[in-house]
């Protein structure tokens, strides 16, 4: 028989503590972003003046645009590569090096991000010194694309593994060439996985700080890097406002992800 979780003594308390420590800081941050007072920790009344100030002082707008641009482009590339990888690794599973490929593609999830960050920085510095390669924001996009691939890859692979191979064969049997079978049968059926993967990749890119911090320079600042630079001048209400915006965007995207990826009743 299934017991309600609350049946176990003390579990409610632990759960409450967990949620408190997880969300209380964010609640405080969001609340104080609407604080009229300049002094961060003293409540003076509701106001949106920090948001106004944030957007009028400049810098943040550019950072937000950069973040968006990087996230959109990196997501597109990551998803395209992830679909191709999933098709090969699921459909042609037996080939030599399949296991290695699977491991390599998931590597960015395991390698400590600071290691990837330092390595990426060195890599780009080398490229610049040797052949003058420096795309500015493009460098950040390339780096993001790489660590977004495994996040896009996993839900797409899961979806593909659940898909009946006979569906594609049926399409081929009914006069669809390889591309049409992909376009009209595989891709539409893969879509929930693709959307989920894209959402994940987008959020991961949008929130990334460590790698971006390493390789960003003047003019290529993203939102998290910008917020971090603001903190160096003390925690101002503008930092709270910028963070709140970031939380809102991430939450919205994760909500979409959840709606798309939950099992449908048929």
């Amino acid at each position: 028989m299934r017991q309600p979780v609350g049946h176990y003594p003390g579990l409610r308390l632990w759960t409450a503590l967990f949620f408190f420590f997880l969300y209380a800081p964010m609640v405080v941050l969001v609340a104080y972003s609407f604080n009229v007072n300049k002094l961060a920790m003293i409540w003076g009344g509701f106001s949106t003046r920090w948001y106004v100030k944030l957007f009028t002082t400049g810098g943040i707008g550019e950072a937000a645009m950069n973040s968006l641009l990087v996230a959109v482009i990196a997501t597109c590339f990551a998803v395209a590569i992830a679909i191709a990888a999933a098709l090969v690794l699921v459909r042609e599973a037996g080939f030599r090096g399949a296991g290695l490929s699977n491991a390599l593609i998931s590597m960015p999830l395991i390698v400590p991000e600071i290691v990837t960050a330092v390595a990426t920085l060195m890599f780009f510095v080398m490229l610049k010194n040797w052949i003058g390669f420096d795309l500015g924001l493009g460098n950040i996009i390339i780096a993001h694309c790489v660590f977004c691939i495994p996040f896009a890859f996993m839900p797409i692979r899961a979806r593909l593994q659940d898909m009946d191979l006979a569906l594609e064969q049926a399409a081929r049997d009914l006069y669809a060439d390889a591309w049409k079978a992909f376009r009209f049968v595989t891709l539409p059926l893969l879509m929930p996985g693709v959307v989920a993967g894209a959402m994940l990749a987008f959020v991961i890119s949008l929130d990334d700080f460590i790698i971006t911090q390493m390789i960003s320079g003047p003019g290529t600042t993203t939102l998290p890097v910008y917020i971090y630079s603001m903190i160096r001048n003390g925690i101002t209400p503008e930092v709270n406002a910028a963070s709140t915006i970031l939380i809102a965007v991430s939450t919205a995207l994760v909500t979409v992800y959840w709606y798309v990826s939950r099992p449908k009743k048929t």
Binding site: D164, A166, L167, Q169, A170, A171, R172, D173, L174, Y175, A176, D177, A181, F184, V185, P188, L189
Partner: peptide, 27 residues
């Protein structure tokens, strides 16, 4: 398979779940 005038009825039917019956038949 797409260049053979031969069609298959699959063991578990393999109907396209994202299409209507008419779209399946017209595919």
């Amino acid at each position: 398979p797409d260049r053979r005038p031969v069609n298959t009825v699959f063991q578990h039917y393999a109907l396209f779940p994202h299409m209507t019956v008419a779209e399946n038949v017209g595919f």
